[in-house]
Amino acid sequence: DLAEQLTPELLDSPREESLQFVSELKDPSCACAVDVGTVWWAAAGCRELRVVTASESAVSLWEPLPPDCWAKIHTWHLAEIPVIQIVPLPDTCNLVCVALGELEIGEIRLLLYSSETDSFKHSLVKTGNITAVVGLKDQRLVSSSRTMQEQQLEVVLLSEAGGSKDRQTLMPPEETVTAFAEVEGMREALVGTTAGNSVVIWNLKTGQLLRKMHIGYSYPASICHRAYSDSGLLFVVLSHPHAKESESCGSPAFRVVAFNPRTGRSTGVMFCCLPPGCAGRRGDVWDRTGAAVLTSGAVAVWDLLRGRCSALLPPGPAGRWALCRWAAGGAGLLAGSHDGTVRLYRY
């Protein structure tokens, strides 16, 4: 029904870029799924992509069984504090990172297999009142946390054994940092968004705060997802989970904004709307593609360079979709419902 309501402009070539069902897994022991993701896992000389599912009290690792099944290999039980999200660690092997807490993140833990003890285990990486956490390439994790007096931004270099090899502090801006995104192709550059609707840039090597650039007041509470540097400009993909629908523009799902880091000036480059009449939740971005679960229970996919909705996944056999995440390595889109059903789609 939702697909029929979409105007032709939003889905002008759905056949070319639609989502193709690949495989499904179902965790019968999952009372309420909170997140889904993928992780590269090396075992017996072979590296493969595995699915990770999380409920409030347990995180499970699934291996692919050809042709199109998944088998649960291990479940880490984390009963003391609820799991809030899986934190993807790009390019990292054999490590699953999870954030735990009540209303906000209070702990970040690594889940892993220890060959020394021939057992699965988990280890604590950070505690505190954590407002944002993101995994970066080269086994790094960046987080913002706050005390009554100050905000602390920290990059942790993770070890394969689940500990930290090194820690680097970043200079905090005055406003609370709400999200981070690494700059594609620039290992030492990091961007973030703040509660005051600014984009900030750091040098990860030195910890310097290089620039704070205000986004404007049109779309408050912007969240950064990805950033790309090209031709002297910084292109940042933003979502606006709390923006209100307007008659002239609709509801923004994702925007691409170009910043000149030298002057701090910016201009909107691309604008992706939610389908008419839909509201959305926080989305996920991979490469040049965005996805978000709509409150209707459908998943929408956008081509961020063309600024259009390119695919729509209606609610699945298990009911409304509640989660969507891009799988690592271009493997496709994971859609999950609260009952523990996860489906992988090729995009």
């Binding site: 840039i201 040098n203 290089l210 620039r211 400009l233 910084l234 170009a258 002057t263 000036r265």
Partner: peptide
Amino acid sequence: CSESDLGPISLNWFEELSAEAPP
């Protein structure tokens, strides 16, 4: 995007801002 909208553009913005920012 043009320089008139965004001001002078530098391909080495990251190195330049790192040299100028407080340590």
